[in-house]
Design a protein around this nucleic acid. Structure first.
Lengths: 188, 188
DNA sequence: GAGGTCATGTAACAGGTTACATGATTGA
DNA sequence: TCAATCATGTAACCTGTTACATGACCTC
């Protein structure tokens, strides 16, 4: 059910997206609290159309395949409102890198170190991307003013959570690499 | 496949656990980077026994059902080592609360506020639990010394990531509540 | 005596992943 | 000319969730 709610929320703040647009928004490289693959989205959107939560408007394009632009119906908006009243499930995190780090003494240290380095680079990219998003949102306004005056702060608040998540990933990865280096030096 | 790897890692650092023990360790209230329900674990453990990755030793107990204590086989240790050499998948986060916050202006503000408060309380509990774990690990030793001298730092490093995750959840939740309060005050 | 913990699971269903298929256009 | 982007999806499979079942013990 929760993917459905995530789609409702995405359509409510973006408005009129194609399945392809949603697929980009739910890509792990961009999304900070929910991911989904295109296959999942097309399947779910089909179901949501049958249930009358979203409506499609076909836009013919020259030199491009036709688009099906989706938007929320009244029933869709109602379902989204109802969702916000339900108790949210606890956060689920799945991180294979942390499994590897947990078991690193039983595995290949050099590989794990390389994986932490790769993750650090990804986190830095995501952080840079989120910070650009933030600048775009604020549009010159100060954060304090924005948070009180803007009519919609929800997306900004979730963006702040994404930013601090990536900042902590970076901090942690650097610490872990430092520890590994120190231990390697001490082993000789 | 990744649940399998998570089980291998759990058995490698704990050694000889029952399905029930693992279920507690993978519970969302305790686990910081992978969760699984008992049903999932019993199914997966069955498979892993067939594949020869884990072996069960049945321990008869008086006044309690028999236990099946599981441990890694040589093949299991090899599989775990091999896992650490593979590229880990990117972190997957799924958080319904952040969907609700993202869409809060389309939903029920009072409910969302209550959900943030509930999440804050959970994060504080988890943080307290993680901090106790840390004290137990350090056992009077300073962190700096521990990180260089201990033979196994993997579990400690993942614990640190869990701690900072919950600290950021707390910080974020408090900020979000403050913003909501200010906006409510400004609306009058 | 009610509810929690220890300890095992099964069945049915829902949700997520991987691989494939199509085909034109645009930029390096 | 090679890869990426736009844009749609399907099929098969794997993983995760929910609800149920059993039964004795321990604590309030």
């Amino acid at each position: 059910m929760a993917l459905q709610d995530a789609i409702l929320a995405a359509l409510a703040d973006g408005s009129e997206s194609s399945g392809y647009d949603l697929a980009k928004a739910f890509d792990y490289a961009v999304a900070n609290f929910w991911t989904a693959t295109p296959a999942q989205l097309y399947r779910e959107l089909e179901k949501m159309q049958d249930e009358g939560l979203v409506a499609a408007r076909v836009v013919a394009q020259e030199k491009r395949p036709n688009k099906r632009l989706l938007s929320l119906t009244k029933a869709g908006r109602k379902a989204l409102h109802e969702f916000t009243t339900r108790d949210p499930k606890p956060t689920a995190i799945r991180d294979e890198l942390l499994i590897q780090v947990d078991a690193m003494e039983h595995g290949d240290l050099a590989s794990v170190k390389a994986h932490i380095e790769a993750r650090l680079a990804i986190a830095e990219q995501k952080l840079a991307y989120y910070k650009k998003s933030r600048e775009r949102s604020l549009d010159g306004c100060s954060e304090e003013d924005f948070l009180v005056e803007e009519e919609r702060v929800g997306p900004y608040l979730t963006l702040l959570r994404g930013i601090s998540f990536e900042q902590e990933n970076i901090r942690w990865a650097k610490l872990a690499l430092k520890v590994l280096a120190k231990r390697e030096a001490a082993r000789r």
